[in-house]
Design a protein around this nucleic acid. Sequence first.
DNA 1: ATGAAAGCGCTAACAG
DNA 2: CTGTTAGCGCTTTCAT
Lengths: 366, 366
Amino acid sequence: MSRSPTPRRRATLASLAAELKVSRTTVSNAYNRPDQLSAELRERVLSTAKQLGYPGPDPVARSLRTRKAGAVGLMITEPLNYSFSDPAALDFVAGLAESCEAAGQGLLLVAVGPNRSVSEGSAAVLAAGVDGFVVYSASDDDPYLPLVLQRHLPVVVVDQPRDVPGASIVCIDDRAAMRRLTEYVLELGHREIGLLTMRLGRDWPHSGRGPALADPDRVRNPQFHVQSERIRGVSDALAEAGLNPDALTVVESYEHLPTSGGVGADVALEANPRITALMCTADVLALSAMDRLRARGVYVPGQMTVTGFDGVPEALSRGLTTVRQPSVEKGRRAGQLLHNPPRSGLSVVEVLDTELVRGRTSGPPA
Amino acid sequence: MSRSPTPRRRATLASLAAELKVSRTTVSNAYNRPDQLSAELRERVLSTAKQLGYPGPDPVARSLRTRKAGAVGLMITEPLNYSFSDPAALDFVAGLAESCEAAGQGLLLVAVGPNRSVSEGSAAVLAAGVDGFVVYSASDDDPYLPLVLQRHLPVVVVDQPRDVPGASIVCIDDRAAMRRLTEYVLELGHREIGLLTMRLGRDWPHSGRGPALADPDRVRNPQFHVQSERIRGVSDALAEAGLNPDALTVVESYEHLPTSGGVGADVALEANPRITALMCTADVLALSAMDRLRARGVYVPGQMTVTGFDGVPEALSRGLTTVRQPSVEKGRRAGQLLHNPPRSGLSVVEVLDTELVRGRTSGPPA
DNA sequence: ATGAAAGCGCTAACAG
DNA sequence: CTGTTAGCGCTTTCAT
């Protein structure tokens, strides 16, 4: 069970120095500044280190001393199973991970989803040994955000919330994108539109967890900036076309389960059977809705127009009419903002471009 | 730009104690052991902390003192874009993240893919402030593994390599699973089989990065235990049926790109046009192969049987004949092994169950 | 090129 | 309940 020279006590830089009868500085230099000592001495240090089973300078102690953790934290407020099943969220994480890899930084996932109590989540945020935080799509009143800010570390917010003091933000123009998409739908001739969206607030005033008709008050004051802007974008287009924005049928879904879109579609159509276009604020919702419509014998786009948002691969391959947003790039930019902060030291707002994708799921109303 | 009482220097536990004229212990207790001081004193501590902008005990300093980092490291040796596009790998990460969340631990992604030099990757491994490592499916001669081991931290290996001294392992019986699948294919009557697999070694002796015919030497000595076992499983079944295992046409693919399976199928069929069954060691390969075959006008399963491995959702929904493995559970178990190490202190081997899924992509040869 | 001294910010005994 | 004493393991001036 014990290798040759495994000492009872873990070897440290100091013990190694003692063993070698050199100063700790020298050992430290052997690892961190090879040019500060002779090559042979360095070799001697490294070889006895190996012999003693010294793993090299302890990362935590080094972090304490240098005040650098070598990692950025990603605060994930959604339930993990959601984050890991939504392609757009994953693309974001992939982009962030990529930029961290390039910068030689670690990426620490800090999950503070609803599965944990707020105090447990708080502990996780406070315990994260990181040099900065990325906050991904949190609600305006997220309870963990103040804790993140309290740590006085650089923070980059992605998508939402806006107006976090001191934080840079990477986002898209949700309102304009959704307005443009809606204009397209209206041009096709649709007048009765259903909107399927993620939950409008952290709370959930409906019974059960399934998609439910959102009441107008909630629609007017969503706690998520993104939802708010997207709804506003739809309203803009409706108003512009001389339609009443309040006539929009809005169904909110607590989470994006594989079936959420389908159930949401049912709810919307039951609430307003005259709907001819179903606009979804996420591709996963739209795809699920399409599946459900097909099962009900409703043809898309013949009898129902369906649109999504995100531009995930499956959506594009299935010809969904949607808005493509650069999810990977969001992650990359967020990381870069942390790794190479803007010279000014001021916070930055980066608005990334989106693109309207006219697919095969939209057409004139029946 | 400056809040009311923002001191030039970051507040620390000591400065807070001085301000309050109490000992550092008391302040520490206010955060870590609320029962060790009066509620009112604690309140006073916390409130002046807020006033001073003290974010609470520094996680790094605490880690140094307590010798606990509060996070586990996940060493990812594949290119990130692969890890984040393979559903099976993602399920694994999701399971691991879930168990970390439940244990109140962070999850530090340490990417040491081929995009970075070995020395950069080494630095990342050595710099990770973690209490243990999960190594996900590394090659037998992975250059970073020794570094991980060198840190004398608990290690859990997933899938491969085997026989890492001191490390626990979570895996499946790849050989038995693949044997069973092959037996099924043979029962259907197939005799000429093509095998599409991930690259057989860290090196890549072929020109270009696309799928290529693997030479027999390489097939006999893969550097990845999993590939090795799966090929062996196929051989077992072939030998059992009185066929020559060396007659197997093996095509290896450097990475799992969306098109890898399709190109691999082309390569295999060109090398041996008599092939009637294409067995793939990953669903993503099989799905891509199916797409390609359809494009070529080859009917599945009428003219070609195709099988996969993993049991990812898309494969199951498309009726792929495959082996389902519990990827999420792998991640969960790996995490648990780290968070609640077996009482014995000895390393453990956990072999999780797999299930043969007879789908609609397999049938008798034409 | 090498060493001595001085902490980084915190917690864990152990006394009082 | 509160304070004193000792470091955790390392890097970094500043001398030599």
